[in-house]
């Protein structure tokens, strides 16, 4: 797979006061590929994601989207580029039904003011069917009644419904049981097979080896390795996470 990267970060850095959260990190993800982002707590995974999402402003480095240099300063920029982030807490409104959640903030209207419920229901069904999400009985039930895996599926479906090119999933399987994890990983795979670029953050190496095409490993804000799962072992990845070689040691005078 040597297709062009959808998103490419070159040498990005971010510091919070004296804390260097990211230092000179390169990161790429390609269409049709699942890129896993691993690292211990405090390695900078979330900072990197939030930098891409426009929640943090990156201090240094370049960002290319589909080959063109871009500057991301707000979540709006990210959404306009076609990048959707599914956060760990999913941010679904429990009291609203599946359709209302999927269209929240982007409701279809008729005659300028009326909610076009029929159209929204139709499109929500189409999206869910295209992702082979088959476990939801009715799109008119409140999200509160859904299981963790089903909620994750709704959050992902919501993210891909808007012609997004890159979907970032933050710990999508963290709170799920075995069978539901299975469903979500299948869904992640299908997203990539549809030609989307997918970035998945996870602590679960087993899941990652199952679904990812590449693994980027961060340690103390630096990229220490990039792996291809079929050519490596879990031990190697664990080693990189815990003792990967750093270009610069934090705290030392450079």
């Amino acid at each position: 797979m040597d297709n062009k990267p959808v998103l490419e970060l070159k040498g990005v850095s971010k510091n919070f006061g004296a804390v260097q959260a990211l230092y000179n990190v390169d990161f790429t993800c390609r269409a049709g590929e699942v890129m896993a982002l691993v690292g211990d707590n405090g390695a900078g995974k979330s900072t990197l994601i939030k930098g891409i999402a426009g929640i943090y402003k990156l201090d240094a480095g370049e960002v290319f989207f589909e080959g063109k240099p871009v500057t991301i300063t707000s979540p709006r920029d990210t959404a306009d580029l076609g990048i959707e982030v599914v956060y760990q807490d999913l941010a679904l409104a429990d009291n609203l039904d599946v359709v209302a959640n999927m269209f929240l903030g982007r409701e279809a209207l008729t005659r300028g003011i009326l909610l076009d419920e029929a159209k929204m229901e139709q499109e929500a069904l189409e999206t869910l069917q295209s992702l082979s999400v088959t476990t939801i009985r009715s799109v008119r039930q409140a999200v509160a009644g859904l299981s963790g895996g089903q909620r994750q599926a709704i959050a992902v479906a919501k993210a891909v419904m808007w012609n997004s090119k890159l979907v970032i999933l933050d710990e999508p399987t963290a709170a799920l049981g075995v069978a539901q994890t299975r469903q979500v990983l299948d869904l992640v795979r299908r997203l990539a097979d549809r030609g989307l670029a997918v970035v998945i953050i996870s602590h679960n190496l087993h899941d990652i080896f199952e679904v990812a095409d590449r693994i980027t490993c961060l340690r103390l804000g630096q990229k220490v390795a990039e792996f291809i799962p079929s050519e490596t072992t879990q031990q190697e990845v664990v080693h990189a996470i815990t003792a990967g070689e750093l270009d610069t040691v934090p705290g030392m005078v450079q």
């Binding site: 979540p75 709006r76 956060y87 807490d89 941010a91 679904l92 409104a93 429990d94 009291n95 609203l96 209302a100 959640n101 929240l104 903030g105 982007r106 409701e107 909610l115």
Partner: peptide, 18 residues
């Protein structure tokens, strides 16, 4: 719809751009 969303989950509403 936004009134219900804010009542159900203000954070979700905020992230949806409301």
């Amino acid at each position: 719809r936004y009134v219900y969303a804010v009542g159900g989950n203000p954070e979700a509403a905020r992230r949806a751009g409301i």
